[in-house]
């Protein structure tokens, strides 16, 4: 018996889809290609099998996501994760927040930043540097965006380069995408 997880957590739950995932044995060649199934790689999550219903977008989104989150240079990995967490808090994607908050904790070897964010959400009070990054991601994630030139200027004043700010825009924005899949097509559960 599995139970839905409604509160933010760093213990990554299981993701359970609301729609029936594609069964690997029934997948079309195009779906297998988008899933990147090869004889040596047959491991694939329920999430990716769900997205395989639309192989054209899955095939382009996976490399886009990886380029934004793990591309070389620019913003540090931890700060990209913080951008992802900011979006996931606004959109209340508990699963996305768990994955990316725990990565932030691993990368920074601290837990206080995420604890503050999980306790107070968008109103969390953080150190100056993380505050500017988190607040920008939160404001950009609203509909319509509430980010302002002042938010960008705050990032500049803290010494972020234009490439680093661009990477923050991209990491918060790609979670505007990921949250809308993960939070709406299924839910986090504990078994």
């Amino acid at each position: 018996m599995s139970v839905p997880v409604h509160e933010f957590t760093v213990e990554v739950p299981r993701w359970a889809p609301y729609v029936t995932p594609v069964a690997l044995e029934d997948a079309t060649p195009e779906q297998l290609d988008a899933l990147q199934i090869t004889p040596s790689n047959k491991k694939v999550s329920a999430y990716v099998l769900t997205l395989a219903h639309d192989p054209e977008s899955l095939k382009v989104r996976s490399p886009l996501f990886n380029a934004i989150m793990y591309g070389k240079g620019g913003l540090s990995s931890a700060e990209r994760e913080l951008g992802a967490v900011g979006a996931s808090i606004v959109n209340r994607c508990v699963y996305c927040a768990a994955v990316h908050a725990s990565r932030f904790n691993q990368l920074t070897k601290r837990t206080d930043v995420i604890e503050a964010i999980f306790a107070d959400g968008v109103d969390a009070e953080l150190e100056e540097h993380q505050q500017a990054i988190f607040d920008f991601a939160v404001r950009l994630s609203r509909t319509p965006s509430e980010a302002t030139p002042t938010d960008i200027a705050a990032l500049r004043d803290l010494g972020l380069s234009k490439l680093e700010i661009l990477d923050l825009i991209l990491s918060a924005s790609i979670f505007g995408w990921a949250n809308r899949l993960m939070h709406t097509l299924g839910e986090p559960v504990r078994d």
Binding site: L140, I152, S173, L181
Partner: peptide, 23 residues
């Protein structure tokens, strides 16, 4: 799933554009 991808993409794209304009 197709509908979710469409909505998710447009909401990604509009934020990248908004961020670039601010920058």
């Amino acid at each position: 799933v197709r509908l979710a991808e469409l909505a998710a993409f447009v909401n990604y794209q509009v934020r990248v554009i908004a961020g670039l304009r601010l920058l």
